Simulated scan of single mutants.
Amino acid sequence: MFRKLRELLLKHIQGNVVIYFIVILFFVVGISSGAFTVKALSDQHKGELISYMQNFFQVLNQSTFDAFSVLKQSLVNNLQTGILTWILGVTIIGIPLILLIIVIRGFIIGFTVGFLIEQMGIKGFLFCVFAILPQNLFIIPGIIIIAVIAVSFSVMLIKSKLNKNYQVDMVRQFVLYSTIVAAVFLVILLGSFIEAYITPIFMRFISQYM
């Protein structure tokens, strides 16, 4: 079973290698933009963010952590992104907006990581490794895969409109498209569980040394 899944995944990547390159490129652009934005912040804004982070670490160490609330919020945020991307995939004009979503997700990560490392050095790097990386090992690939599939489906729609000789069963393709997106959501769900129930353990430990 796992061998078949691996073969299907490799076939999918090979068939969409150009789209993967474009989506990942936009994600990297978002990360770079977020990191450079940190450099452009005024000292006042940096001071406000540092104060917010210090308060966050204090609350994290003193209060009881509501993992279920974190899980709900993570699911809402990530499912909104995934569902919006899925909807945009069935529109002809959805491709630019899908890429914009990818840029924004990259920007958020780039800004957060860039700020933590700039202000806290090795401590900030360790916090990123243990508090940001674990869940995003599942969430970000999931969102990228959904974006690639959505762009691919949108391209197929454009071809069918422009080329009358391009024959495809749209209903069957839509069902397949939606099924794959739903399966990828399970990967994102795993990332949300990690963010809610595993990452906080690391965050509490690391925050003691921040």
Rank of each mutant, 00 (worst) to 15 (best):
F130Y: 15
F153C: 04
W86T: 08
G82Y: 00
M156G: 14
I101V: 09
T81Y: 08
I146R: 01
I140K: 04
I102D: 08
K161A: 11
E118F: 00
W86Y: 10
Q135S: 15
L126N: 14
L84N: 13
M170C: 08
M156I: 13
T81N: 08
K159D: 14
V155T: 13
F115L: 09
L84S: 14
M120W: 10
F153Y: 13
A147H: 02
Q135T: 12
T112P: 06
N163W: 12
R105V: 01
G106F: 04
P134W: 11
I144H: 01
Q167I: 13
I83P: 04
G124S: 02
I132L: 15
M170G: 10
T91P: 05
L97N: 04
I98W: 02
F107I: 04
I98M: 03
L116K: 04
C128P: 07
F125G: 15
K159Y: 14
I158N: 13
R172I: 09
I149M: 03
F111K: 06
I83N: 04
I104W: 02
F130S: 14
G114K: 01
G82F: 01
L133G: 09
G121V: 05
Q135E: 15
I117G: 00
A150H: 02
L84P: 03
P141V: 10
P141C: 12
I117F: 00
V103H: 07
A147F: 01
V155R: 15
G142C: 03
P141R: 11
I93Q: 07
D169T: 12
E118I: 00
V148T: 10
A131L: 13
I109P: 05
N136H: 11
F111A: 05
P141A: 11
I143V: 11
F111G: 07
S160D: 10
K164W: 09
L162Y: 11
F115K: 06
L88F: 08
F111R: 05
Q135N: 15
F107D: 06
N136W: 09
G142L: 01
G124T: 02
N163G: 10
L133K: 10
W86V: 03
F127D: 12
Y166P: 12
V155H: 14
I117S: 00
G89Y: 06
L97Q: 07
